[in-house]
Nucleic acid binder design. Structure first.
Length: 265
DNA sequence: GCGACAG
DNA sequence: ATCTTGTCGC
């Protein structure tokens, strides 16, 4: 899994304008349609995959936690990576790297991209698909963190966000039933023609009760995955929880590794 | 000037 | 993201 586009590796020392210019380049280089080798039908049920003889893809979830120094400032990012194959965790790695810039909406990958790439260096298995905690094409310049990382490594990737950065749902997304997907289209805030399909609000889980409900996930193509497949994958990989299993476990692992480091200090 | 804003 | 107890509902 080499870095195919070293020229697009996020550089936190760039000026804002240059970061945005790079994001437009990334969006140009990205493929927002299916282009992968594995059979997407094998994503959900490992049993079906096994009996069909198809080899399920190695799916890698990525998430971050943050470490603070003595002064109480967030100065390091901890990137956690969990690799799964046929529903089983086959590898977990993490990396800690210094943080260079604050969180700025739209420029997340310039804050978290380096730590993520550092963690991916530690990974020994070959990923077939990345799942990131954040947006892909649902982004002002169609280059969210899932798109950025996917293009740099040229690995199919999907963005899974818990809230909507930009774009507009074509319908009410509140309190929908499990399995529902509502299109998210480009609006005036997005660098794409109005109405361009950017992704979906996907309801992976829902309660039965009438007086409480779960919010949807905002799923979008990162690279080499179309919007339908991105939504399909999120639904197939979410078993008992709202988040798809690879990202949920990466989430847990990021917290666990952080706790272990804090205790040793 | 006002509003919106992944993690 | 992170700081955090209790509390509501199944």
């Amino acid at each position: 899994m080499p870095t195919v586009r070293p020229d697009l590796v996020p550089d936190a020392s760039l000026e804002r304008d240059d970061m945005e210019a790079m994001q437009r380049e990334i969006a140009d280089a990205a493929a927002f349609e299916d282009d992968f080798d594995f059979d997407p039908a094998t994503l959900g049920d490992p049993l079906a995959a096994a009996s069909s003889g198809a080899d399920p893809p190695t799916v890698v979830g990525v998430d971050q936690s943050f470490l603070t120094n003595e002064a109480g400032d967030q100065d390091r990012a901890l990137s956690a990576v969990v690799a799964m194959h046929g529903g089983e965790v086959i590898e977990r790695v993490y990396a800690v790297t210094p943080l260079e810039i604050p969180y700025i909406p739209g420029l997340l990958s310039f804050r978290e991209g380096r730590p993520i790439l550092a963690a991916l260096e530690e990974l020994s298995v070959d990923p077939d698909l990345f799942l990131f905690d954040g947006s892909g094409r649902i982004h002002f310049r169609q280059a969210g963190i899932a798109t950025h990382m996917g293009v740099v490594r040229d690995v199919p990737s999907i963005g899974v966000a818990k809230s909507l950065l930009c774009g507009s749902p074509t319908d009410d997304t509140e309190n929908r039933s499990e399995g529902t997907r509502i299109p998210i289209e480009a609006n005036s805030r997005v660098d794409a023609p109005d109405g361009t399909l950017l992704g979906y609000a996907v309801q992976t889980r829902q309660y039965d009760s009438p007086n409480r409900y779960i919010n949807p996930l905002y799923v979008s193509p990162g690279h080499r995955v179309g919007p339908e497949t991105a939504a399909d994958a999120a639904l197939a990989l979410a078993s008992s929880y709202k988040l798809p299993e690879p990202v949920r476990l990466a989430d847990n692992y990021a917290d666990e590794a952080k706790r272990n480091l804090d205790e040793g200090t």
